[in-house]
């Protein structure tokens, strides 16, 4: 069943690739924030699958901390977007 891991990783990797493309071409700053949010959620999944493959549940702690920091990052960027009213972003 080893090859199934490769399938899962390639699916997640394609998802990450699409979000990164949007991160680069996104016309407005808010599009980039959206793609970063999606990117973070996919990375949480990658960490959890790695934990399962390495058979070590310490990696799940890292996933929890990553989820916390991802949420915080989304909030900070959203508030930053709102912060300046006059800019044409």
């Amino acid at each position: 069943m080893e090859w199934m891991d490769y399938v899962v990783f390639s699916l997640m990797g394609l998802g990450i690739l699409f979000t990164v493309i949007r991160l680069f071409i996104g016309p407005k700053l808010s599009d980039r924030v959206v793609s970063l949010d999606t990117f973070n959620m996919i990375v949480i999944g990658v960490i959890v699958v790695l934990a399962s493959i390495f058979q070590s549940n310490l990696y799940l702690d890292i996933a929890i901390v990553y989820a916390i920091l991802a949420f915080l990052e989304t909030v900070v960027f959203a508030r930053y977007l709102e912060g300046k009213k006059d800019d044409n972003r």
């Binding site: 990783f9 699916l11 997640m12 394609l14 998802g15 990450i16 699409f18 999606t38 999944g45």
Partner: peptide
């Protein structure tokens, strides 16, 4: 993995 792929595709 499929839904992750779908999310990335949707964002794109």
């Amino acid at each position: 993995g499929l839904f992750y792929l779908l999310g990335g595709l949707g964002v794109l």
